[in-house]
Design a protein around this nucleic acid. Structure first.
Lengths: 330, 330
DNA sequence: CGAAACGACTAAATCCTTTTAGTTTAGGAG
DNA sequence: CTCCTAAACTAAAAGGATTTAGTCGTTTCG
């Protein structure tokens, strides 16, 4: 059993107000004699009193709590983001509710609603739906929030994303510089902003290099491992010989592709040049040619937390930040 | 602005009690006429009322909140555990506070204290210190909790861990069956239970196969990438030719080792047989011989949540569960 | 007919803090 | 001696829910 403020006050023989003042040390227009302060403090320590956060935040209308909603944690980018964000937020006195939605919009909506009813102070979302095709509640619209990774069209709000267009462009540009004349594209769901931007980047780079773009060179499905596997299969079926170059929109997709190729078309692993989004230490040890681009997690965390805290402290300005990717040209 | 129960009651022209009853539908010894119920419900929908979780849990002494404390999320096992646990807990109506401690005991203690002051209903910890060399508060001792991955000596409590001893034994056994006569061990910090068990497994397997065990064959440091790198270096310095077999205690360690070997001793990658704990899809595409064992996350999540919920519902029995590992003998 | 039972509500207490608006005591100024 | 002020506290309200213990008519039963 933990004691309450009231009980401490009774034991100490002072009022609740006094104990509260001592514990919070907020002596604005109140003074407490050194004697009393010490007396109360001793009891607080002795009984290991710490304020009940429920009651506290009920009164203060502040929970010192943030919500982070991501598609999944097995995805290394989100894992790293979550881990760093958690640490940074904690350093600022916030505890984090972290939730994975599995990229499912109904789940996302349910989770956000739950978080809102818990009166979180701020919200970070990598949304499953960039188009914003659901009607947010007033409470949702009122809460400080930052979208990450994928920008969201509606409601108009702050976001921190990577420069996906530029990343895709430069990856494909590099493939071409290295001699590729035929680049295939395997990407995530066309309703997610990252997919759209990456695809545009790829296409513009091909255009710059005056390379042909046939519709069957563009495959889009989802960001899942199985999507990667399936698209590799589809590609292989329609084009049995190894293409010169293959671009995948995420590490998970790349893993799916790899799985298929190893099983059904190992020749590709030797002859095709790969470019992919995502980070993975083991890429360095794979045979074959692989270049990659990954998000600058540290900068993103920093920017996200700053935007969020600024909103929490009352600033209503909307800010939208695009962060450059990092490239590994092996 | 969201309305409160009181305001809804005023608009509806009924008491707070009635609204509360309608919303929670807990008509044990209270009845509410269909008419009133419908009337109130309409207003609740219209204004999008949902109860304030702070106030609710203050009264109920239940927060429908669980804490999960892990060393880090970039580690795939913890990421997968967290993701699945989050989903399973949400299905049971709990929201999860997830925190990464970076395997730092002071951080762990601080985080747990914070979670306790928020009155979480249950706690899951992969502790940075298996020896239990800190004094837990009464509140900590009283809260339903389950240790995972690493068991904790004190306080006596429920845990769900993998059968590390067996896993290490069988990996090394397999190495020996495949002809290895000399196995080196690279492991995590000797104060963490998983390290201790894995080491014992390795040593017992060597003994079974009547293989020599020199002290310099056993390296222990920590579970970090850099630890792996450093131990590989140390090993290479004292033994420049590729050893027949090398065991690493985690995927992160293996990655560190790989990094060093690729830079300084690429020959090893061809000639040494590797065995490692951990899961990583890309292992399948690496050249060389690698066998591995990884935790059965699904079963662990299931067991952990069940033990926790049972404790929350009042069962005080301590249960300690060891779950078999999964092996991939490539 | 009187008492008990029941249906349909409501008032007020409770959970634990924070904070506003006092209250009490002592000392100094006039 | 009275009045005022400062120092050091305290009482009570507020914050938003749940729940115990009623209240007040209307039926039902003996």
């Amino acid at each position: 059993m933990t004691l309450s403020l009231k009980e401490i006050a009774e034991i100490a023989g002072v009022s609740k107000t006094t104990v509260s003042m001592v514990v919070n040390g907020r002596g604005e227009h109140y003074r407490i004699s050194a004697e009393t302060r010490e007396h109360v403090m001793r009891l607080v320590e002795e009984y290991g009193y710490s304020p009940n956060a429920q009651a506290r935040s009920l009164r203060l209308r502040k929970t010192q709590t943030l919500g982070v909603v991501v598609p999944g944690l097995v995805n290394r980018f989100f894992a790293e983001f979550a881990e760093r964000f958690d640490g940074a937020a904690r350093a600022q006195g916030y505890q984090v509710f972290l939730t994975a939605t599995n990229d499912d919009l109904p789940t996302e909506i349910e989770v956000v609603k739950n978080l809102l009813s818990r009166n979180i102070d701020g919200l970070v979302v990598a949304s499953a739906d960039s188009a914003g095709r659901w009607t947010p509640s007033n409470k949702y619209l009122a809460i400080p929030r930052v979208y990450i990774d994928r920008l969201v069209a509606r409601p108009e709000a702050s976001w921190v994303v990577s420069d996906d267009y530029d990343g895709a462009y430069r990856l494909v540009d590099e493939l071409c510089r290295r001699g590729a004349r035929e680049v295939y594209y395997i990407g995530g769901g066309p309703r997610i902003s990252t997919s759209m931007d990456r695809r545009r980047g790829v296409q513009d780079a091909l255009q710059t290099h005056r390379l042909e773009q046939r519709p069957e060179q563009i495959l889009e499905r989802g960001y899942d491992f199985r999507d990667g596997y399936a698209m590799a299969q589809q590609l292989h079926d329609q084009h049995p010989t190894p293409p010169e170059a293959l671009f995948t929109g995420s590490m998970t997709l790349f893993e799916g592709v790899l799985q298929y190729l190893q099983e059904q078309a190992p020749l590709w692993l030797e002859h095709t040049r790969f470019a992919t989004f995502g980070k993975q230490p083991m890429l360095d040890y794979l045979p074959g040619s692989i270049i990659s681009a990954h998000q600058d997690v540290e900068k993103m965390v920093e920017a996200t937390l700053e935007l969020l805290l600024r909103q929490i402290s009352g600033d209503t300005e909307i800010q939208q930040i695009k962060i450059p990717l990092k490239f590994v040209f092996r």
